[in-house]
Design a protein around this nucleic acid. Structure first.
Lengths: 249, 249
DNA sequence: GAGTGGTCTAGACCACCTC
DNA sequence: AGGTGGTCTAGACCACTCG
């Protein structure tokens, strides 16, 4: 006799577990609170640790949890809104933005960047590394690529690699009249060096923002910024409603 | 004497595996080509299947691979650029955009949306469900929330739930003068219903785009769109650049 | 050193697709 | 029916943090 399996919709355990945990986070936990460890949680729900971890991974991806090796799993605060566009659509480095320059070198950019810059794949370009902190937390790491041909004064820079040189490159860049820019956002995973800056493990999910700066009718520079996907919500203000800029909580 | 541990950085197997596979994809495979199955790949690299899967998951997250149950793992085409802003920052549904309306109901929105709309958490609002296809592929599913108070003509709509009603709601919305909009982008995981629309499994990574439409000095509508993170690269054009070009002419 | 999350294994079974 | 990826288990060891 056919065991009439009613509702044969075997929802995966980890999925159900996720919703149960999510509800518990809403009702029984507060931000910053530390959860029981994975082995105990797994036992409590009667599942293998790997299954429990699958649920936790989802919740971490959604910014609900924060896990740190050797420490534990804590309830994450709501994602912070991070404004991606500089007010006034300026060149990078203008005014007192939240970025901090690290150093500058001259090296061949990734193939994708070279393509955007319309330079030869092995042509070295000025590369400025910066990172961005908000509320004391690292949120983004960026590489800014500027071909020597874009800015005449660039060749004259003789500062050694380092912060001073980075500032010099940005200063030269700002002499150009910015005509426009366009951006794209996609999902990626943190490379080892970015992960270190962002205080995450390699492979952590990041939002990759690629900005193309246009001057003199051509691509003058390209910036590739990786934002922590777990803690950040990228915000874009519409300049048409410039007076309504108060939403970036 | 401090044991100067020279680079004792035991790179995880799945991480190393990922780079090996990534290089192989670049050099030995072409778009659409099908990879050996997971059990064989695992054996070939001498790792457990779970470890191999960890590497594949990363590559899928980065849009390099596409996996489908019962079929296999194939090499994914480059992500497609999807324009998020309508030209001219229009209300949704204007002109021939790529969206297709599905239906419309009146229901209480998610708490986060109610907060943006500044309505009571349980107040029903007009909800329009749409989805978007590009090149024959589903890329996004969206819910548009419009409080009854935003548009006077909304109460008069008597079309039954369905496509006709959805169009009627959009039509009424477009009578308002749009003053501005702002957006945010964050990482999320697909709910069961969205996942179905997007032809993915529940929990698949998505880019959640929240748009707030402002008219009459208040939030007139909120749209929450979920884009497939594996296949999409969201693009934002800078309207300021358009102005400058006009000035330059 | 004790406790945490991160990695890895070697199995098993299930859901889905195609032939 | 056979093959694929998706889920799940019950262990083990490792890397890291902190008292």
């Amino acid at each position: 006799m056919g065991t009439t399996r009613l509702e044969s919709v075997p929802e995966p355990k980890y999925w159900h577990l996720k919703t149960v945990l999510s509800d518990a986070l809403d009702s029984e936990f507060s931000v910053g609170q530390i959860l029981p460890n994975e082995r105990e949680l797994a036992a409590r729900f009667g599942v293998a640790r790997a299954t429990l971890r699958q649920a936790l991974e989802q919740l971490e991806l959604e910014g609900r949890l924060q896990r740190r090796r050797g420490v534990g799993t804590t309830v994450a605060p709501p994602r912070m809104g991070v404004a991606v566009a500089d007010a006034g659509h300026a060149w990078p480095g203008t005014a007192a933005d939240a970025w901090q320059s690290l150093d500058s070198t001259e090296e061949a950019p990734p193939a994708a960047v070279a393509h955007l810059l319309e330079t030869a794949p092995d042509e070295p370009v000025h590369t400025v590394r910066r990172h961005r902190r908000t509320h004391g937390q690292p949120v983004a790491a960026e590489s800014l690529y500027v071909p020597a041909g874009s800015v005449p004064g660039l060749a004259a820079i003789d500062a050694p690699a380092g912060q001073a040189r980075a500032r010099a490159v940005l200063r030269e860049l700002q002499r150009l009249r910015l005509e426009g820019q366009d951006r794209s956002v996609e999902l990626g995973s943190a490379r080892a060096d970015d992960a270190k800056q962002l205080d995450r493990l390699p492979g952590a999910p990041v939002l990759v923002v690629t900005t193309r700066y246009v001057a003199d009718g051509r691509t003058a520079a390209v910036a590739v910024a990786t934002y922590r996907a777990d803690t950040c919500r990228l915000t874009f203000a519409d300049p048409a409603g410039a007076d309504v800029e108060l939403l970036a909580v």
